[in-house]
Nucleic acid binder design. Structure first.
Length: 599
RNA sequence: GCGCGUGUAGCUCAGAGGAUAGAGUACUUCACUCCGAAUGAAGGGGCCGCGGGUUCAAUUCCCGCCACGCGCACCA
């Protein structure tokens, strides 16, 4: 695909300006208002060096650049040089590229031979998979897909919370009030019940806490009975989690949880000691980070048992030694910011300079509205919304809508799943990660406006248009035969509208209308948006862009009739529809959402 | 108290030095004998939290304040 910024930078370049091509390129902007052009070059900053009025500089550049045929117009407005690309050239360039690359459009090989680890979801064993877990799960999955699309080798890690004091509590509670049958039927709900009860009873009887601590100690020593129970809890929980992952279409490459690292910690305790970082404080072992304003990182408790930071250090080193990652991404709630900063600092002090490649990707809190109160979810109090319930409700609502609309030719069961679950995922990926939000059924079940179903509907609509076209049209615009290779740099074959390689029956000047052109421009930017979303760890950038594409498509659909009588016009427009459909499907895929043909 | 984050339309949120600050939603209308109305169009709605500073230019960057959220040693 043509790099139009590069072309423009070359046009602008003049020794007298004292700017390199790259500098010019980075100064080129996209005007907020399309009426002001496709690209703009502000001249204010040049005024001092050139000792000329910015207006005049812009005027001179505009005049010189207008020589090139690729522009429809170049003009100076308020010291901006505004560039208008020849629309037929531009649209042809984009449509050809998408037709060529198909499902590969948007992908790149930026990260060739580099390994990126993404740790996400990481639920606690024996606790419910609730709506709060959706964020790490869905954001992490999208990041994995984005990095994969950028050509990186990837490893998806589910760092299960399968270790720690909670298991002492759980085991104690199970022994006291547990029931085998109950556990087999609905493991997590049963375990949650025991856990909740434990905290209630422990308020009255603090000795339960001691008992839990002793139980954990026995578990750590590998006592048989405790280990059996722990294994059982872990397996039952995992099979429930997998049910939800299957619904979401999410998989992992590694399920090594905290327990995996429990025997790998002594090495680091020794190392911390050897490096003189460990000090004793109130019976516990800590690393003093007061100087960096990070307080104290606790390494071992006063009873000698290990803590989170220690395990995370062991895990990080293990991963570095095993995978030699280029980047290791941790998709974990912003509540743990301090923990991650401490952990990175300790790694740094230990001399692992690769800690800078470990990236904490935080996200905001999900809370529940309880009347007028807003509360965080509490497993202990049993106040949670189960993710599985949310997904199921979204699916059945979708099925209702489909029956109401009498959608034909589809398996309602299958499609309602794709759309309902897609709606939940899309919602989650719509806003900046860092924002907190209050869970609301109304919001998650809204399918109008900027939602997943809206985008999927747009895809289905584009598919429908293509179905309505006849076979000759489709074969004329599909396959690699579409391509003419590189875009013409001269205007020789763009003004005439006939594009070599597309056959005589395609003429991109039919895409000069505002809505078609706006759509083409948005499709053009997808590859750069994918890279940016990956680099900023912000899937919502792609989600937003996808909504823009859907809006542009729908506007195009309303503004212009596609299946017109004129063959050339019809086929050209169909080529754009096919391109849009491809891109929408690709982008939805990167977000972990499917793109049904009908809904 | 200290640290981190967030404050933009009634509500939910985009925009991150530049041109007249944008979407969705809600509300009031309009458009299906026409390629899918889960759609599109029109309208009203704004001290971009407050006060300073840097700059040719600040909603955007810096400093202070206010409000809210999160975190601050034996949970993760």
């Amino acid at each position: 695909m043509t790099d139009f910024k590069e072309l423009i930078a070359n046009e602008i370049y003049d020794e007298a300006l004292g700017l390199e091509i790259e500098e010019i390129k980075s100064m080129i902007e996209r005007p907020a208002d399309e009426a002001m052009g496709d690209y703009a070059f502000p001249c204010f900053r040049l005024a001092k060096a050139l000792r000329k009025a910015p207006q005049q500089i812009a005027e001179d550049i505009a005049e010189a650049a207008y020589k090139s045929d690729i522009f429809e117009k170049v003009e100076n407005v308020n010291a901006y040089v505004n560039f208008f690309i020849d629309r037929a050239v531009f649209a042809g360039d984009v449509v050809r590229e998408i037709s060529d690359k198909g499902s590969q459009y948007g992908r790149s090989d930026l990260g060739k031979d580099k390994m990126v680890l993404v740790e996400y979801s990481s639920p606690n064993i024996a606790k419910p998979f609730h709506i709060g877990h959706i964020r790490s799960t869905v954001i992490g999955n999208a990041l994995y897909k984005l990095y994969d699309a950028c050509g990186y080798d990837t490893l998806r890690i589910n760092y299960l919370g399968d270790y720690g004091t909670q298991f002492g509590k759980m085991i104690v509670a199970y022994r006291k009030w547990g029931c085998e049958e109950e556990l087999a039927n609905e493991p997590i709900k049963a375990l949650l019940g025991y856990y909740t009860r434990f905290h209630k009873e422990a308020e009255k009887d603090p000795s339960l806490e001691d008992e839990a601590r002793e139980t954990v100690a026995r578990l750590e020593r590998g006592a048989e009975e405790e280990t059996e129970l722990w294994k059982k809890f872990r397996e039952l929980s995992l099979s429930e989690f997998n049910r939800v992952y299957a619904m979401l279409g999410i998989e992992f490459d590694s399920y090594k949880g905290e327990s995996f690292y429990s025997d790998k910690m002594p090495r680091f305790l020794q190392e911390l000691k050897d490096k003189g970082l460990l000090i004793e404080s109130q019976g516990a072992q800590i690393v003093d980070l007061e100087d960096c304003g990070l307080g104290a990182a606790m390494i071992t408790k006063s009873d000698g048992s290990s803590l989170y930071v220690t395990r995370d250090i062991a895990a990080a080193v293990y991963r570095k030694e095993t995978y030699d990652f280029y980047k290791s991404i941790y998709v974990v709630a912003s509540q743990q910011n301090l923990h991650f900063r401490q952990w990175k600092k300790v790694l740094e002090l230990m001399g692992y300079e690769w800690e800078k490649d470990c990236i904490h990707v935080p996200f905001g809190l999900v809370s529940l509205s309880d009347g007028d109160d807003i509360k965080t979810m509490s497993t202990r109090e049993g106040k949670v919304v189960f993710l599985e319930d949310v997904l199921n409700t979204a699916v059945s609502k979708t099925a209702d809508i489909m029956r109401e609309k009498k959608v034909e030719g589809v398996d309602i069961d299958e499609v309602s799943r794709e759309v309902g679950i897609g709606a939940v995922i899309f919602q989650e990926l719509s806003n900046n990660r860092i924002k907190d939000y209050v869970f609301s059924w109304d919001k998650v079940l809204n399918f109008d406006g900027e939602t997943g179903p809206y985008v999927q509907y747009t895809h289905a609509r584009a598919s429908s248009v293509l179905r309505n076209a006849d076979e000759a049209d489709i074969s004329a615009i599909s396959g690699s035969g579409l391509s003419s290779g590189s875009i013409p740099n001269s205007a020789s074959d763009s003004d005439s509208g006939s594009q070599a390689g597309f056959g005589a029956n395609i003429d991109f000047s039919y895409l000069k209308g505002d809505s078609a052109y706006t759509l083409a421009k948005l499709l053009y930017r997808v590859p750069e948006v994918v890279v940016e979303a990956a680099e900023k760890y912000e899937p919502s950038m792609l989600t937003r862009h996808l909504v823009d594409i859907a809006q542009a498509f729908n506007k195009f659909y309303h503004d212009e009739h596609i299946l017109v009588d004129d063959e050339k016009e019809r086929r050209t427009k169909l080529a754009l529809v096919a391109a849009a459909r491809t891109v929408i499907a690709n982008c939805l895929g990167l977000l972990g959402i499917s793109a049904p043909e009908r809904m």
